[in-house]
């Protein structure tokens, strides 16, 4: 597994650039990932999505379904893609430090 260093912090990541451990997440991680996910500036809307994904994951141990993410944040899927060009899974979940999505993807 690769280890990346950014702003004095170290992060253990897999080939797809997902954090190996949710506990390793810090705000610096978001800064580190954003460019590779096609994001220039982290806005309040980005933060809202990241915060909700983290809360949901801590509470439920899984990532929320897309429908629930939309319902709670109020962002339609189209808006989520405007915020995170590679989508809620590869984009938002990666930045929030959640484990890599699995299954028949």
């Amino acid at each position: 597994m690769a280890v990346v260093e950014f702003q004095g912090a170290t992060f253990e990541v897999d080939e797809d650039g997902f954090l190996q451990k949710f506990e390793d997440w810090t705000p610096a991680w978001v800064d580190f990932v954003k460019e590779s996910e096609g994001i220039k500036e982290i806005t309040e809307d980005h933060q809202k999505v990241i915060d909700f994904l983290q809360d949901y994951y801590k509470k439920n141990g899984i990532a929320p379904m897309v429908r629930i993410l939309s319902k709670v944040t109020g962002f339609k899927l189209k808006q989520i893609y405007e915020l995170f060009p590679s989508g809620p899974g590869k984009g938002a979940c990666k930045m929030a430090g959640l484990p890599k999505p699995t299954g028949c993807v």
Partner: peptide, 20 residues
């Protein structure tokens, strides 16, 4: 082949099956 793999192109949430 390793488990899973999440890659793709901007704007889409699917279309590419990542594999290592």
């Amino acid at each position: 082949w390793k488990h899973g793999g999440i890659v793709g192109v901007f704007g889409y949430g699917g279309g590419v099956i990542g594999r290592y």
